[in-house]
Design a protein around this nucleic acid. Structure first.
Lengths: 221, 221
DNA sequence: ATTTGTGAAGTGTTTCACAGCA
DNA sequence: TGCTGTGAAACACTTCACAAAT
């Protein structure tokens, strides 16, 4: 019966990632009017085993009914509480280039409770402009604005060359999470979590697998 | 002693991902004029151990010199060959919304050898327009154009609701890799690789870790 | 009859530690 | 000396399989 928090820092990262994915599917099922789902059904729809689903949830308590499965609405609420998405998060965006602009207008973030409330850049060409309803501020105001608006997380879409510098400023401003889209590893000291997504790296993974099809495996010593 | 290809399908995914990251750092080091690097130095710069670096490379052959380390230019060439990025890949983009537009203009892809040579959408509002120098085609031309232009990989930036449909069309057109940006698991049958990136999932991971800071770990039974 | 929650087994990945080479 | 390449050990994650619950 819905519990929580078994020392979150030792929950394996893959478990947390899958929780998001379960949530996505559960919301879909709820929209279809389904009331309950078994671990096997949920797993099957997503390419996981039922045991995986059950073990993942077991990190956080007991949520199911033997013989019945999981109450969909209930589980949605529980997973949201576990992930911390049962409330609205205030974010800022740093770097209003092509990618940054797209993210400012990206509706799904807001729907998931991630609200971008400020946007920063350093280029005089964009500072002062309004982009998708957001007035762009200069990065040198970042510290003040983050504190004034109670901003908790940031999306950084700046070039690799400024990524660490921006990261330092965000950290100093007291932000607790950074989604880094630059192809650069960020150094932070405790208390701030960083997740980096590099789309070029993902394309290289695809290239690797696609090459395998063309270059048959010669295994010489 | 640069070698290659020890049955690529059984190389662990994390190894391939790190190869991309090593490559990124090696290119940086090369730009700084460095000639050699040890596994320890390379790992340290990226948050990995030296042993990890050596084990990863060991999947593909022997690349280093005891007492010296790795020749940077040599290793860059070898990793590019392993990943299959020692040539230009022809991609198409499907879905010219906010995100799609940003990717069409995203210079780093082209620099890494991923060239977007066609863009598709289904909305009459954008089909026929030119966006960042790309004439937008209707998705119903996808099969023909993919074959005519020899397109090998696709980036799909369509809404979740059309993601599977587009995936089916891409597969039928004979594409070998899909980078899926929609929050939806794609079903494919052998021969096509899919990598999905859902930025909302990443934000949820950050929310989970940020919540841990606020909600101290009460571990009740 | 069905499905959960969970120890135990199995599999996969990372780190250790050291022989061998430059 | 400094560093690679690699078995062996440690650790992490997933799957199995079944008692308990409805």
């Amino acid at each position: 019966m819905s519990e929580s928090t078994p020392d979150r820092s030792r929950v394996p990262a893959p478990v947390v990632r899958r929780l998001s994915i379960y949530l996505r599917e559960l919301e879909e099922l709820a929209a279809e009017g389904r009331l309950t789902v078994s671990s096997g059904q949920l797993g099957h729809a997503l390419g996981f085993t039922g045991a995986q689903v059950r073990k993942d949830l077991a990190h956080f308590g007991q949520f199911g009914q033997p013989g019945v499965g999981y109450g969909i609405q209930r589980l949605i609420g529980d997973i949201r509480r576990i992930l911390g998405t049962d409330r609205i998060w205030r974010l800022c965006l740093v770097g209003v280039g092509n990618l940054g602009r797209a993210l400012l207008a990206h509706a799904p973030f807001a729907r998931k409770g991630f609200q971008i409330v400020a946007a920063f850049d350093s280029s005089p060409d964009v500072v002062g402009q309004a982009v998708h309803g957001h007035k762009i501020l200069h990065v040198n105001q970042l510290g003040r604005v983050v504190k004034d608006l109670g901003i908790e997380m940031a999306i950084s879409a700046v070039p690799a060359g400024s990524a660490q510098e921006v990261c330092d400023a965000l950290q100093k401003a007291g932000i607790s999470g950074i989604l880094n889209l630059a192809p650069k590893r960020l150094e932070v000291d405790g208390g701030v979590s960083v997740i980096s997504v590099d789309l070029a790296v993902q394309l290289e993974q695809l290239a690797f697998h696609a090459s395998a099809l063309l270059a048959p495996g010669s295994d010489r010593r």
